[in-house]
Amino acid sequence: MSWWERAYIFEIVRGLSITSGVFMRNMWRWVTFRKGALTTYYPEERRADYSPINRGKHVLTQRPDGRPQCIACNLCATVCPARVIEIEAAFDPDDALHPKYPVRFEIDYSRCIFCGLCVEACPEDAIRMVPDAPGLPDAERDHMWWSRDELLHWNPQRDAAKHSPSAPTVAAARSPGAP
């Protein structure tokens, strides 16, 4: 070190002027109602370079009448390497085309590794992954389990490629004027 640097005080003044300069610049931005920080308020804001190919959250697609496209074939649960998908199938005699449907379809996000194999395995395009992230931070561990209705309704998507006739529902059968 040169004697200039060994005298401490000059280098300290230089350092303090840098930090106080940054402080003044940012403070001026704050008092003129601009943002004086590089921080992004993550859940409320999203960075401009948030990857468009990020697939962080599952969606269950709906049929035109709003019921799940899923036929409870269990392929996704079988292929899942982390074994986070739980499906409980049921039989619906009213729906002649898709009598088998899931009453329970749950994903445990505490163990999900977001590999996307469930989406590839699905023969019905019933499960998709979208550019989002599950809002996981919570006081309750149980809230990391997402149920069928949450997956179905948080961001409803319908399969536009398929035109399956809507099943005769109980409500439609009871109202004779309905088309």
Partner: peptide, 10 residues
């Protein structure tokens, strides 16, 4: 707050 503003944080 001052340390945050000095280092581009909130």
């Amino acid at each position: 707050k001052q340390s945050a503003i000095m280092s581009d944080r909130i």
